[in-house]
């Protein structure tokens, strides 16, 4: 990996964290999007798409709900995809690598969110003066700190990591590499299980099996399942409106847990 590529990956790291900070969270922080961009930077677009999709399946359960700081998918996605491309690693090995990176990224995230207290204090001071521009400056100060921190994390990780990882991979026996491949087929089960925690309740549990049966037994693809699911949801909504929803249902929306899958 050249220094220029590492710099580009670092910039992608800064932009990746900016997705949820500055760009209103448009899903450009997710591996499914970042993977292909890493692929473009490293000259292997196809591998980037495929690795991004696999990482997305595993990390799907990691979402920033509530105020908890979660394992960092931005740096983990970029570096895991990059290492996978540069050293020909299997996706599950890339995921295994992504773990410590995500934890390190989480640490950086905690530091930045603490250090931002300085800029929030600047905003308070500006408010005291009735200074609108001062509030603007404080906000962009925080944004700048996020960018710099994630640029450095990804840039250094890419530059220092790729040689180390490459040397390590050369020494792995074939059976272990095959094992990673088996594991990468299993890992999406974890992402899906975390999602199930988010969605399941006693009333709707059957619909998971509807979706499963559609694909496993009838061979319907995910797009088809989504269309059928939309139809079911529409019918239920119309039916529910017809007989007037019970007041008890009003509470349901607020029940979501705050710390979904906050461990990865």
């Amino acid at each position: 990996m050249s220094v220029i590529q590492a710099v580009l990956l670092g910039i992608l790291g800064g932009l990746g964290i900016w997705d949820s900070r500055v760009m209103g969270l448009c899903m450009m922080e997710r591996p499914l999007f970042l993977g292909p961009v890493v692929g473009l930077i490293l000259g292997d677009f196809q591998t980037g798409i495929v690795v991004g999709a696999s990482l997305e399946l595993v990390m799907m359960g990691i979402v920033g709900i509530g105020s908890a700081t979660i394992p960092d998918t931005v740096s983990a996605s970029i570096l895991a995809t990059a290492f996978s491309i540069t050293s020909g690693l299997d996706v599950s090995a890339a995921v295994a690598l992504a773990l410590p990176i995500a934890t390190l990224g989480q640490l950086v995230g905690v530091l930045v969110r603490t250090a931002n207290g300085y800029f929030a204090h600047q905003a308070d001071k500006a408010a005291e003066r009735g200074d609108y521009k001062g509030v603007d400056r404080a906000l962009w100060g925080g944004a700048g700190l996020f960018f710099i921190a994630y640029f450095l994390l990804v840039f250094l990780g890419a530059l220092l990591g790729s040689a180390v990882i490459g040397a390590f991979v050369d020494k792995l026996p074939q059976s272990v590499i095959d094992g990673f491949s088996v594991a990468s087929g299993m890992l999406p089960a974890l992402g899906i299980a975390i999602l199930m925690q988010l969605l399941f309740d006693k009333k709707n549990v059957a619909f998971f099996f509807v979706g499963w049966a559609l694909s496993a037994l009838l061979g319907v693809n995910t797009v088809g399942a989504a269309v059928i699911g939309t139809t079911i949801a529409y019918i239920m909504f119309q039916y529910g409106r017809g007989r007037k929803a019970e007041p008890a249902a009003v509470e349901a929306a607020g029940e979501m847990s705050d710390d979904l899958g906050g461990e990865l």
Binding site: I192, D201, V210, S215, A225, G229, A249
Partner: peptide, 29 residues
Amino acid sequence: GGIIAALSEVAKVLGLVVVGSMCASMVKL
């Protein structure tokens, strides 16, 4: 009339159908 609650409920149903389908097509063992 609980429109928001009803919408959240059916949104979950739709999500679950897709998740079930993903379980069948993405998990390999």
